[in-house]
Amino acid sequence: MKFSQRLAYYLGGLLLGTIIVVYFLQAKAESRNVNFCYFPNCRVLQDLRSKPMHYSPESEAILKENWVTLQDVKNCMQYGDVDFSISNKSFEHGKIYFIKGKNTKGEPITVSMVNYSDKVILKEIKKD
Rank of each mutant, 00 (worst) to 15 (best):
residue 48 L to C: 00
residue 55 Y to F: 15
residue 17 G to F: 02
residue 113 M to A: 15
residue 20 I to D: 03
residue 9 Y to P: 01
residue 50 S to E: 05
residue 11 L to T: 11
residue 83 D to F: 04
residue 32 R to V: 09
residue 124 E to Q: 14
residue 18 T to E: 06
residue 74 K to Q: 14
residue 41 N to V: 07
residue 110 T to H: 05
residue 128 D to P: 02
residue 75 N to F: 04
residue 120 V to K: 07
residue 126 K to D: 13
residue 66 N to Y: 03
residue 6 R to S: 12
residue 77 M to D: 08
residue 78 Q to A: 13
residue 69 T to G: 12
residue 39 F to K: 11
residue 84 F to I: 00
residue 51 K to E: 00
residue 106 G to P: 04
residue 18 T to F: 15
residue 45 L to S: 07
residue 6 R to W: 09
residue 123 K to P: 00
residue 53 M to R: 10
residue 38 Y to K: 12
residue 20 I to W: 06
residue 30 E to N: 11
residue 51 K to Q: 09
residue 5 Q to N: 07
residue 26 Q to Y: 12
residue 2 K to H: 10
residue 75 N to W: 06
residue 30 E to M: 09
residue 70 L to E: 14
residue 128 D to T: 07
residue 39 F to Q: 13
residue 86 I to P: 04
residue 92 E to T: 05
residue 69 T to H: 08
residue 37 C to F: 05
residue 54 H to T: 12
residue 15 L to A: 15
residue 121 I to H: 03
residue 23 Y to W: 07
residue 52 P to L: 02
residue 24 F to M: 11
residue 111 V to D: 09
residue 62 I to T: 14
residue 77 M to L: 15
residue 102 K to M: 13
residue 20 I to F: 13
residue 99 I to Q: 00
residue 54 H to V: 08
residue 55 Y to R: 04
residue 55 Y to W: 09
residue 124 E to S: 14
residue 97 Y to C: 01
residue 120 V to F: 07
residue 77 M to S: 10
residue 35 N to M: 08
residue 4 S to T: 05
residue 94 G to M: 03
residue 47 D to N: 11
residue 28 K to M: 06
residue 115 N to E: 08
residue 65 E to N: 08
residue 55 Y to I: 07
residue 118 D to A: 06
residue 106 G to K: 05
residue 109 I to G: 02
residue 127 K to A: 15
residue 2 K to N: 11
residue 118 D to N: 12
residue 29 A to Q: 13
residue 66 N to Q: 07
residue 83 D to Y: 00
residue 109 I to E: 11
residue 27 A to K: 15
residue 49 R to P: 02
residue 105 K to S: 15
residue 80 G to T: 01
